[in-house]
Each structure stands twice: as structure tokens, then as C-alpha cells.
Design a protein around this nucleic acid. Structure first.
Lengths: 233, 233
DNA sequence: TTCGCTCCTTGATCTGGATCAATGAGATAC
DNA sequence: GTATCTCATTGATCCAGATCAAGGAGCGAA
């Protein structure tokens, strides 16, 4: 854990407003810590106070732990995402790297205090927090009321939106997470996830290349499988 | 839909900072609308732009709709809560009154603009949004990895925290929502919810009075049933 | 290239909660 | 009070997905 100029600069350009004064930048620099994580390693953070994390580069999963070794992936994050790790309450949370990651961490309370004079930073935090809430609500619907096939279809569409590369009518994905992570995110088992992948492949809606490569061939049909009300044109 | 001084005043005292200037108060007044909802009625709001809602008095549920008439309750809200209704995306959302409600609604974008000069309002919005996100994440774990009994126990504990009246070691609840609402919130059927209530009653952990009255007799045991990692002392 | 390991896929069986089907018990109207 | 209607409870059966159990395929190391 040391201060790395590159990661902090990345944070500055992506989160702070364009014309932030140098003394403010310096203030944020003193608050933040740069952390590099190897795949499968988790971020250690104080369990009594919330932490703000900016993911400069990489992909992570936020995991909640219940009793009895059960795990639930609450969210995946990718390069450029900003997230708040809550203090541990009835359950504990960990942030784990899916691939090599560079991140900047800040004590939440101090960050907020530093941001108070900079309305644009607050607005940005609020906006990103709203997006997270929105994603979390979509997930709630998925976990509460959808079948296995609908969950996997929703997952693929959501990933396409966030890390997909469109190629004509197709969307290519390089999933950084394992089948286990997907299962833990969708409230299913790896076997069930695998079976839905096979089903979608057999129906000609997706193609898979190796473990992580997925190509969405029929986004409109996937939308239908996902149980969405409005199907993208 | 008309301007009601009482509801607006309630909003002012609960959301705006103590010493907000009268011209700012006037600005918010022009943006907000007071709405009274009878039980089971839903709030109508534009589906292309997000709306901010302050619940002056009452209790509501935020419902997501998937295809095929399936519904998922995303959250319950009580007097004093502030919530953001998203623009409709892949799914549609409605806010429905559980009891008689008074609420103030604001167009989200305009509200934010008006709040920009008032850092304390932004901070408050952010804080409340973070609490919502936190609750939503707890719900994700509940829906993804918990059994029916754990879900119902978690639900009762969560309600105890928000609307419970402690009486000695007991906590009394007057649930404003039906078994159907609870089921739709927990991703279960009303039959299953009912069976878990019966189970908890038979085990001496709760007592029920009529349809809405519930007394939690053994909070520690409920915590254990809820699958929480840390059991309250 | 081959080894070896982990992750993924496929198949057989089991089960928790859904579904189907009556009753029972609160609330509201009269 | 009592009629009525909705909501909640209880019981019987069913099924989607979990669990158990082998294989098979990708990928890194040597």
C-alpha cells in the first residue's frame, strides 16, 4: 500500500471536476491510498467505518457473507467505477479482485468532508450512488421473481451494456468472472448457470469461446428471455 | 394535486437545513407538489424522468413489474423517508400507498439544480441514498441465498428496526402491509410466508395479534434464524 | 508436448417452496 | 349483532433448481 501517482491521476481526471485547484487535489491525495490487488485477493478495509473506492483499472466483485459459508455477489465493478463499502453490520462484506486491479481508497467520512466545498464532486457521488441503487433494484427483481433462464439472460444483457464490444448486430463479451461468481451473483448454483448457457447456445442466441468468451447473437431474443417488459428494437 | 402548506413545512423541517433562507424555501415550494394517496392507490409520475419523493406521513411500497404480471416489492418506506423513483427502463416501477399517505414530489433534475448551492441538502440526499443502497444490498443477500424462514425472520427484524416499539425485551410491530406484500418483497408466496409465521409462533419467538400485529418475543433467537453472522447481544 | 489441476459441463436424484385446493378468521357494511 | 368479503392459514401434490456424481475441456507449468 503506497502512493502511486498514476492511479491518483486517474482518479483526479475521472472524479474531480476539470478545474479543481491544486491545493484541493493535494488534500485528496493525502486522504487516498493506492492499492494493487492480484486476482482473487481481497481488499482489507476497516470494518467499523465505510470506505470509498475508485477502481482505476480492473474488475472486482462485492461479496456479502451470511452464516454457514454462503456467499452472495452483490455487484461487479469495472474500470472507472466508484463504490462505497459499508461498515459491517448484520453481514460482512468483502471486495475481491477478479483480475489484476489498481484502486484508490478513501475513508468515506473524510472524503465527504473534503468534498463539501466542491458541489460537483458531491453531485457525482450522488449520481453514481443512484446508478448503483438502480442496478441493485434490478437485481432484487431478478433474484426475487425470475427463473434461472431469465436470470442468466438478464446477466448477459447487463454485462453487454457495461463491458460489451458491439460488432455489427453482435456483442462480444470477455467475462472476467467465473461460473461460480455468476452463480453467486444470480442466486443459483454453477450447474444451473452452466445448463442455461448450454440452453442459450443450443437455441442459437449466444456463442461461447473458451471459458470467458461469450458472443450475444440475438440481443432482442435475449431481452425476451430476460423477462423484460420492453424489448429493445 | 395542490400545494399544501402542512406537507411542505414537514418537508422543510425534515430535509432542508435549519437556517435555509426564505427565498430558497420559496424556490423549493414552486418545484414541489403535494399529493395525498388513499390506501392501495399508486402515485402517477412521468416515466421518462426521475422523481424525488418525500413521504410526509404514511407508508408505501415501491414495486417493480416484470413481464407476466409478476411483481417484486423493492422497498417499503415510512414517514420521513426520502426516495428517488427511477425513469422506467427494462422494467417499470410504481409507488403504492399501504395506508393514507401525504407526500411531496419534485422533478429530480430540477430539485438537484436547486440543491446545488446547498451542500447540506446534497449531503443529506447522498446519505439517504446510501442507506437505501445498503438496505437494497441486504435484500439482495436475502433473496439470493436465504431460506424462507431466514427471509421472514430477516424481514421482521428489519421492520422492528424501522417501525418497532420496544417494550422491555419485546418489540411490538403494527405491519401496514399484507401477507401478499411481504411475500412479494421476499420472493416467496403468501402460503410460504404464512407457514413461516406459524413456525415462529409455534417456537415461541413471536406472537401475532390480528392481521397486522406482531410482537417479537426473542430478538436474539430471531437474529439466529435470520442467518446473521453477528447476533445482537 | 504432456502433465496436472481447476473449472466447466452433463446426467441422475432429491427437496424446499410453488401450486392447487379448501377452510378459517378479521374487517367492514348494514 | 350478523352477513359478507377479503385475507390468512392449513393441507396435498408437484416441479424448478439444488444436490450428488462423473466425465471433459481449458489453461498454465515444465
Amino acid at each position: 500500500m503506497h502512493t502511486c501517482t498514476d492511479a491518483f491521476d486517474c482518479f483526479v481526471s475521472r472524479v474531480l471536476p476539470k478545474r479543481t485547484g491544486p491545493e484541493t487535489v493535494r488534500l485528496f491525495r493525502t486522504l487516498g491510498s493506492h492499492v494493487h490487488l492480484k486476482p482473487d485477493r481481497q481488499l482489507h478495509y476497516p470494518d467499523d467505518e465505510p470506505t470509498l473506492v475508485f477502481l482505476c483499472d480492473g474488475a472486482t466483485k462485492l461479496v456479502a457473507h451470511a452464516s454457514d459459508h454462503r456467499e452472495q455477489v452483490l455487484a461487479f465493478h469495472f474500470t472507472g467505477d466508484l463504490l462505497t463499502l459499508p461498515a459491517h453490520g448484520a453481514h460482512s462484506y468483502t471486495l475481491e479482485a477478479l483480475v489484476e486491479c489498481d484502486l484508490m481508497t478513501f475513508p468515506y467520512a473524510q472524503f465527504l468532508q473534503a468534498a463539501e466545498k466542491h458541489q460537483q464532486v458531491l453531485t457525482q457521488l450522488l449520481e453514481r450512488s443512484t446508478v448503483s441503487l438502480q442496478r441493485s433494484r434490478e437485481k432484487t427483481l431478478t433474484l426475487g421473481r425470475k427463473s434461472a433462464l431469465e436470470r442468466v439472460s438478464s446477466f448477459l444483457l447487463s454485462m453487454a451494456e457495461r463491458i460489451g464490444r458491439g460488432e455489427g448486430s453482435e456483442v462480444k463479451l470477455d467475462l472476467p468472472m467465473s461460473r461460480r461468481d455468476i452463480a453467486d451473483s444470480l442466486g443459483l448454483t454453477i450447474e444451473t448457470v452452466s445448463r442455461q448457457f448450454t440452453l442459450l447456445r443450443d437455441q442459437g442466441l449466444i456463442r461461447t469461446q473458451g471459458r470467458s468468451g461469450v458472443t450475444l447473437l440475438r440481443v432482442d431474443e435475449l431481452d425476451r428471455r430476460a423477462g423484460h417488459l420492453r424489448v429493445a428494437a
